[in-house]
Design a protein around this nucleic acid. Structure first.
Lengths: 250, 250
DNA sequence: CGCAGTTTTGATTCATCTCAATTTGTGTGG
DNA sequence: CCACACAAATTGAGATGAATCAAAACTGCG
């Protein structure tokens, strides 16, 4: 069931513009980085619509026809892939200012599911338009390439994590990554709510949910963090970082 | 009438053109897919040079300034990332017709090492030129985006593998992947040489080299494959595929 | 031919999974 | 607003798959 809560219409453009790219709080993290006002304006025009999603709703599903990428304005998503035999694996968590849907470019259909983990809003960026516009706005083209490349680099980091770290270390890496991303958005780097369940985190980290729970308890017992369900408070950021430095060194 | 008239090309170009994109055996897999002859010619001009590497040599290293991506003409590579404390992790194996270096786009320097596992040759594609050319050749732009996207999708597959499969299943997935890629290049899908050591394969799959060796032996004992050091012969392709279907189902 | 690096194989240990029971939290409807 | 049902999280005990440690066999190269 695809949600089509799409704000639309040329006639309504004016008030749409009001919270469009030019003023979006995510603009430093999203596509438009470094554009001139005029270029930004053209990007505004490009972004066809906004779309709101309630918690649990799919932004797109595996196999859906690809025609757009999405910039998250507000909210939190997960992407996962599912195999024939029903196993699934979370490939990432995305937050505001990040781009979703680039997996769909290669085969004209999405290769994973994107699901909102809280009420969210995204900008719909028709991909054909983006490609077209980027032929005349070099800055945009370059930035888009960087965004895609960053996704590749990030995935390499996760592969590394999955391939070489032990359970507790994976959790630490995960928490530090969230911390850093929240910090980049002006939120507290030491205090946040996990939007994902233990099961989803486990899937992402290649662990069972019980192992995630145990690892969190261990970190709490070590005095590094404070856990209250989904609420996390990092009480020793340096301590966490040290855990990754010395990982496996011993 | 595939190749642009050679007699029109500048004198120096002649010998370069001979093994350039227009006639490269990798052209279907590389960037130029679907270009017109004239566009292909312009891509030929774009590819600044070829570069040969002996086994064990680095194509680029972590931290090197990024200015080009590379199309593998012949050979076999691995990419790996290394952490401060010395652990390393193989993030991929690349063969002819595939692109290396896209990890460098995001930060203007490469984020991993690319190392030839056999004597190899690559085409150097200056990235600024590629971006520039792709503004006037939409087919090229689109194809490049597909190539990057495919890399992302592939990485998701590996994350899935690392997160959900057991040792033997990972090996099977790895062998099937190689098989399929060799098949796509017109080589035998059931008979090939591993270019990587057990240690490198293990790093890629998140396993220790002993485990890789054991898993290979097990698969051989099951009559699915034949192993002689680096030489692999798949004797029951369907059997291997079934192993992945039923993975974890039981 | 011999040496170094690679691979195979075995015995043991250890981390994570699995199974299971309990607690805590959340949302719904009376 | 409370009670109930259901989902999520914690914790424990035992099973298991992969890591580790160790030794032997094989390969290729000088």
């Amino acid at each position: 069931m695809k949600v089509a809560n799409v704000s639309q219409a040329p006639a309504v453009k004016l008030h749409v513009l009001k919270d469009a790219c030019a003023q979006c709080s995510a603009r430093e993290l999203c596509l438009p980085l470094g554009l001139t006002d005029e270029e930004l304006q053209r990007l505004d025009d490009l972004v066809g619509s906004r779309q709101k999603l309630k918690r649990g709703e799919h932004l797109y599903r595996y196999g859906d026809h690809f025609s757009a990428i999405y910039a998250i304005k507000v909210g939190f998503f997960k992407t996962d892939v599912i195999t024939e035999d029903g196993r699934d694996h979370v490939t990432g968590f995305q937050m505001n200012g990040e781009i979703l849907g680039m997996d769909g470019i290669s085969g004209d259909s999405y290769t994973c599911n994107a699901i909102a983990l809280e009420d969210s809003e995204v900008c719909v960026i028709p991909f054909a338009d983006l490609e077209h516009l980027s032929t005349t706005v070099p800055t945009l083209q370059r930035h888009f390439h960087r965004v895609m490349s960053r996704e590749i680099v990030r995935d390499h980091g996760i592969m590394m994590l999955l391939g070489t770290l032990r359970a507790e270390e994976r959790l630490v890496a995960f928490l530090l990554n969230l911390s850093q991303r929240y910090a980049a958005r002006g939120y507290s780097p030491t205090e946040f709510h996990l939007r994902a369940t233990r099961d989803e985190i486990g899937s992402y980290l290649g662990l069972k949910l019980e192992t995630v729970s145990r690892a969190l308890s261990q970190l709490q017992d070590s005095g590094l963090i404070l856990v209250q369900q989904k609420y996390i408070r990092i009480t020793a950021l340096d301590g966490l970082k040290k855990m990754l430095q010395h990982a496996q060194a011993c």
